[in-house]
Design a binder for these strands. Structure first.
Length: 943
DNA sequence: ATGGGGGATCCGTCTTTGTTAGTG
DNA sequence: ACACTAACTTTGACGGATCCCCCA
């Protein structure tokens, strides 16, 4: 990879990217291996997936063994067990052998196979039909956890990538180069006091005509380098082109964000498995990092010309090649059609409503498409027209796909009508008023990158406006969801990048949050990740706004009159961003600067909070889903049918709508119910006069347990449930006279601090009950929960509950007791250590003596040497035992004669038999030596 | 052809308050 | 005799997510 070595920061980022990439690669590898292991673990499920021809020999082997095992009982005689050669007599313990035994591997597996082994017939059946019947293995908790981790890592990586592109958009060289290419009349936009979305039209139009999208490339360029290349070639990936548009807007001092749809791996396992083996990603070798849009380039034929002719003429592209023109013709045609068929949602470029199908717009000028045409062009146009007319017939309200310009223009064998796929999928109003995806197909990629420009002239306070320069769409935020849905992508995370920061703006682009939310990571984690970035983003956009006011002076300095001959004309050595900052620092005195900064910050805060409010409002005003299933987990609405077992509607109203005849209630009306006992855990008790709002039937098992109880409602097979509104704060009897109030089991259930009787305290210390008992203070064991052990749940006790007044006394005594205990423990350990040292030293002494006695190299020495090691390790205990017994026991015959080492040849399993050799006494202690026939001796001391 | 409803299936969660023999 | 510890054995019902089939 070629790197601009001069830019250290970028190098760092590059390294970081590589490191991250490697890490993620390893993680994915781990996931793959896990999933493989998982498949192996559940052989049956894998078996069904094993194509008869593709299954590996080991798999087949395993399958064979299984089949054989299953069929060995031979119920119907169709399948006969393979009996291994050694299995003439089988018993119960053969299980393991059956598992580990191997069978000859067959080369071909058919639905029914036979093979003779040692005269036995093998018959097994791995028919696909049988496998088909089996269910697909579901993901385990571990796999789900891994999927969440991968999702998070992927999100972080894509966030990092977005930030890199955002930084690259601030590159002064790129911004200056773009300005140098811009026609002079378009520079005026920078000075506009009230920017409106409409005012951006000519600018976006120019950009769209001059920069084109090509397919994703496999090169691993750094963002800034990629942008430079794209700028030079006037074409790049959708990501690069979108980033260039952001750079251009920023160069013109427009408050602009780079917006990207983070196309992360799924939160759920399995779903992504095909993606791991996706040939495209595999080929690219960059996995999830290669997340560029899959757009099929509109100017797909123009690759050669584009590279040869990198700079386009700014005055309408007179010098452009015919191929360039053709792509523009097609694009313009589509755009025009969009403007004709639909104008209600979002302003589309080229306001011309001419019905002339042959006219195209180019730089706002309507032109005849009289350029040279190739055979493919005509075919394509025919197909396109047929498609468009068909779309109009189907739904005149719908507009063309955003990506209409990127329709694959290769001649298709199928009918053009088959390409049409109206993807106005949902009940969403967008689908009816939004864009049609008639031309959209799997060959067309989703719009994943665009810009957001803050237009001060929109609404009363200004507004962020969606600007998709890649597809030449302005203010088309409502179309994005439909377009991405058409391409089987979901808008799970739409993130706007600015000033090295980022902000989640998904809610602006999605209308069905209830669907999106389920596919997103835990919001707490995501919010925590974004919090610092959001701050950066807010600061950055505020700074730009602040300087926007003085932008005219700067623009006067920029005499950017681009020329076709100038490849990159840098009129201003510093970037717009940098220049403005410098102006601020140089021109303003300290006080003014601070005042102005604080003013801008306050405005930014207002702007940011305004946007937050806007997004929140969108969330709260989501349209009612049309299908019942959507209400199962809808965050805003609920229908009674889909309430859970422990839920109820309270209050039952207001009804906000109907779905298939079912009244729809706000989710806030859904209350969770609990039993009396469960409420106690929360530190709440059910009011005396309250009746259960719901009574459930208890399971058989539980009803048996409850049979004896005489609760009014919870009798036998019933469970009484109460709502939170029926409860009050728990009032337990107060501790009186140092006596702790206990429950029927003589304990206190300490689920939380709230469950403690007033006047008591929970001492969560080990062995503290001993102290309380010694001090004769009343206490109750504190039960803190349950754990499942030995097939049943058992209560877990931690510490005791005592009256508050005894707390200090108990603690004091406890610490004293603990100190004493620790001292005792220390003493015991020291004694033990002493004893072990003694044993060790004895062994060393004995060894030395042996060396001294038998160090001449006789045959017995070998024996002694071989035995001494193991004896020094193992025998002391035995020998000491023997020692202790020896004084009482008579040393029989062996005692009479001294062992002669030369006579005795110890065997391998020889055990020492000691006889008393000599004994001396010093009054208090008597010491002695015991000697075995083999020559091994040990000295002992009798206390 | 497609999407919704509902049944079937499977995985994960919740449930929940011993007994006995051996050892010090 | 008493207190303490370790071993014993290894639930099962139900909710909910997901799959799959049928029907509008």
């Amino acid at each position: 990879m070629k790197r601009p070595s001069s830019v250290d920061k970028i190098e760092d980022s590059g390294r970081l990217t590589n490191i991250s990439k490697d890490a993620v690669g390893r993680l994915i590898k781990r996931v793959k291996s896990r999933s493989l292991r998982g498949l192996n673990k559940v052989d049956d499920s894998y078996l069904q997936k094993c194509d008869s021809e593709s299954s590996s020999s080991s798999m087949l082997d395993a399958a064979l063994r299984r089949t054989v095992k299953k069929d060995e009982k031979g119920s119907n005689g169709e399948a006969i067990a393979v009996i291994p050669s050694n299995s003439g007599t089988r018993d119960e313990n053969d299980e393991l052998e059956w598992e580990e035994g191997s069978l000859p591997v067959l080369n071909s597996v058919n639905s029914s196979q036979e093979r003779t082994i040692n005269g036995l017939t093998v018959e097994f059946d791995v028919s696909p039909d049988a496998a088909k019947g089996k269910r697909i293995r579901r993901a385990t908790a571990e796999e789900k956890e891994v999927a969440v981790l991968v999702h998070k890592v992927n999100l972080l990586c894509l966030l990092g990538r977005g930030r890199l592109f955002d930084i690259a958009c601030n590159d002064p060289l790129i911004q200056a180069s773009l300005l140098s290419l811009l026609p002079t009349h378009l520079l005026k936009i920078a000075g506009a006091p009230k920017l409106t979305a409409k005012a951006l039209t000519p600018l976006v139009d120019w950009f769209h005509r001059n920069f084109h999208v090509r397919g994703p490339d496999d090169s691993k360029k750094l963002p800034s380098f990629a942008l430079a290349s794209a700028l030079e070639a006037h074409r790049g990936t959708a990501e690069e082109v979108a980033a260039l548009s952001v750079a251009l807007f920023r160069a013109l001092n427009l408050t602009t964000r780079f917006v990207a749809v983070l196309d992360v791996t799924s939160l759920k396992p399995d779903v992504d498995k095909p993606e791991f083996s996706n040939p495209r990603t595999g080929k690219a070798g960059s996995g999830i990092f290669n997340s560029s849009t899959l757009m099929v380039p509109g100017s797909v034929h123009a690759s050669v010309s584009a590279s040869n002719n990198p700079v386009s003429d700014e005055k309408g592209g007179d010098s452009r090649t015919s191929i360039h023109r053709r792509s523009n013709i097609l694009t313009g045609k589509l755009l025009k059609d969009m403007s004709v068929t639909h104008e209600s949602n979002g302003r589309v470029l080229d306001p011309s409503t001419s019905a002339d199908q042959d006219s195209v717009t180019e730089g706002g000028v309507v032109k005849k498409s009289g350029g040279p045409k190739r055979k493919g062009d005509l075919e394509f146009q025919m197909q396109l027209e047929m498609a468009l007319s068909a779309t109009r017939t189907e739904s005149s309200e719908r507009i063309m796909n955003l990506n209409g310009a990127y329709v694959d223009n290769r001649p298709s064998k199928s009918s053009p009508f088959k390409k049409l796929k109206a993807v106005g999928t949902d009940e969403s109003p967008v689908s009816t008023s939004g864009m049609s995806t008639a031309v959209g197909s799997k060959k067309v990629g989703a719009p994943l990158y665009w810009a957001e420009v803050y237009c001060t002239g929109e609404n009363s306070n200004g507004n962020w406006v969606h600007v998709d320069a890649v597809n030449a769409i302005i203010d088309g935020e409502q179309k994005v969801e439909a377009a991405t849905a058409a391409c089987k992508k979901s808008l799970r995370y739409v993130v706007a990048f600015a000033g090295h920061g980022a902000k989640d703006v998904t809610r602006r682009y999605c209308t069905k949050w209830y669907k999106i939310a389920l596919q997103r990571v835990n919001s707490t984690w995501w919010d925590a990740v974004l919090a610092p970035l959001k701050e950066l983003e807010a600061q950055a956009t505020s700074e730009i706004v602040h300087f926007e006011q003085g932008a005219s002076s700067r623009n006067n300095k920029v005499e950017a009159v681009p020329s076709a001959n100038k490849k990159i004309q840098i009129c201003e050595p510093e970037s717009a961003y940098v220049t403005v900052k410098k102006d601020d620092e140089v021109c303003e005195d300290g006080i003014e600067k601070n005042a102005k900064r604080s003013l801008s910050n306050s405005f930014a805060a207002t702007r940011s909070s305004l946007e937050d409010m806007e997004l929140d409002t969108r969330a709260l005003t989501e349209p009612l889903p049309g299908n019942q299933q959507a209400y199962r987990n809808h965050p805003l609405y609920a229908i009674e049918k889909w309430l859970h077992k422990y839920e109820i509607l309270y209050p039952k109203g207001p009804v906000v709508g109907f779905c298939s005849g079912h009244p729809v209630y706000p989710r806030t009306c859904v209350q969770t119910l609990h039993t009396k006992e469960r409420w106690l855990r929360e530190g709440l008790q059910v009011k005396a006069s309250e009746l259960p709002v719901k009574i459930l039937k208890r399971s058989l098992k539980h009803s048996k347990v409850q049979k004896d109880e005489h609760d009014e409602f919870a009798e036998g097979d019933q469970v009484a449930l109460y709502g939170k509104w029926q409860t009050e704060t728990l009032s337990l009897p107060r501790a009186v006279d140092g006596i702790v109030p206990k429950n029927e089991r003589g304990q206190v259930d300490v689920w939380s601090e709230k469950c403690l009787p007033p006047g008591t305290v929970h001492l969560r210390l080990p062995r503290v009950f001993l102290v309380a008992k010694r001090l004769e203070i009343d206490f109750a064991p504190a039960m803190v929960g349950f754990e499942f052990r030995n097939g049943r749940s058992v209560p877990v006790y931690e510490g005791i509950v005592v009256c508050t007044e005894f707390k200090d006394a108990i603690l004091e005594a406890y610490y004293e007791e603990e100190q004493r205990r620790e001292a005792e423990e220390r003493k015991r350990k020291e004694a033990q250590a002493l004893s072990r040292w003694y044993q060790l030293l004895c062994s060393i002494v004995t060894r030395q003596r042996l060396k001294n006695c038998y160090g001449d190299g006789t045959s017995s020495q070998d024996a002694a040497n071989t035995s001494k090691l193991e004896d020094s390790q193992n025998k002391p205990a035995r020998s000491s035992q023997d020692n202790s017994k020896s004084p009482g026991s008579k040393p029989e015959k062996l005692h009479e004669r001294k062992p002669k080492a030369a006579e005795f040849v110890p065997t391998k399993d020889h055990e020492h038999i000691f006889v008393l050799d000599e004994e001396t006494s010093d009054g208090l202690n008597s010491t002695g030596t015991k000697r075995c026939q083999c020559g091994f001796s040990i000295q002992f001391e009798e206390l």
